[in-house]
Amino acid sequence: MDPIKKKIQNKSKETRQELIGKILSYSSILLIVLVVLSIFIFVASKGIATFTQNNASLKDFFFSTDWSPTAVGKDGRPLVGALPMITGSFGVTLLAVLFATPFAIGTALYMTEIASKKGRNFLQIVTELLVGIPSVVYGFIGLNVVVPFVREHFGGSGYGILSGAFVLFVMVLPTVTSLTVDSLRAVPSHYKSASLALGATEWQTIYKVTLRAALPGILTAVIFGMARAFGEALAVQMVIGNATLMPKGLLSASSTLTSVLTMGIGNTVMGTVGNNALWSLALVLLVMSLVFNLLVKWIGRKGRF
């Protein structure tokens, strides 16, 4: 056969390389998807068992405040009122992000708009180090510093949503800051030049142009911060008090989904209602991280300009 024809008809070396490359990269990505799916299916099957096998009421789970899964209520169904924990989780998360956002935006503005290259690098190291401190250590500093501080200045025993929020504030700060920095950097520099050329002061430019343009990105940063706060366990557990009671305020001992989950899981037996109910809490955590991600997607779509 004509060697040229043969060469054209056969797959070239490059095509084969390409195929191998595709297989490698596609299989990596499929592996990740598989991992996520299996975690979801696994947690969901355990979490749903509370309602299918143990006959707990879904309505109670979301609206009742009585959490003692091993006991049964008057209607013969297990008492799985998760409302106190859900409230607690949302309480600490929202409050932590509320504290963290102004700090994150301020720091990010300083890093992108004001600081010299040195200052920027320094702050970058600072935020990265904050991420590197293990949550156990945060928990103990919270116990030694934040709890007494809250007790003396705000009252109560010191354990509660406020203390949890203070600890989480520091923990989510780096996440929100670095994502905010990314979104501020993404604002085209000619926006700023145009504004400054019109005679606006630096602050006017920051406030009316840069921040507005970066708004969707900043919102995304805040939501990722919320996702991080929502899932944090060890540190919050030490300062929030872990009482499965409806929080009476920011200063009363309450609990979060993660704190009840970590505390109870070793003391319950797999397959029992006590254990399944904890997996239902895990399922709520999982669904919430899905919701946070959908929110980010939605903001990204809305904010495109």
Binding site: I29, V43, E232, L261, A282, L285, S289, K297
Partner: peptide
Amino acid sequence: IFLSEYAPKNWFTEIIRMAIEILSSLPSVV
């Protein structure tokens, strides 16, 4: 490499990106 070089712009890629994001925000206890 997949995400940066090969990923087509479609719903499948969207789901994959989402899966990765979710994996990163999973509570470590879980």
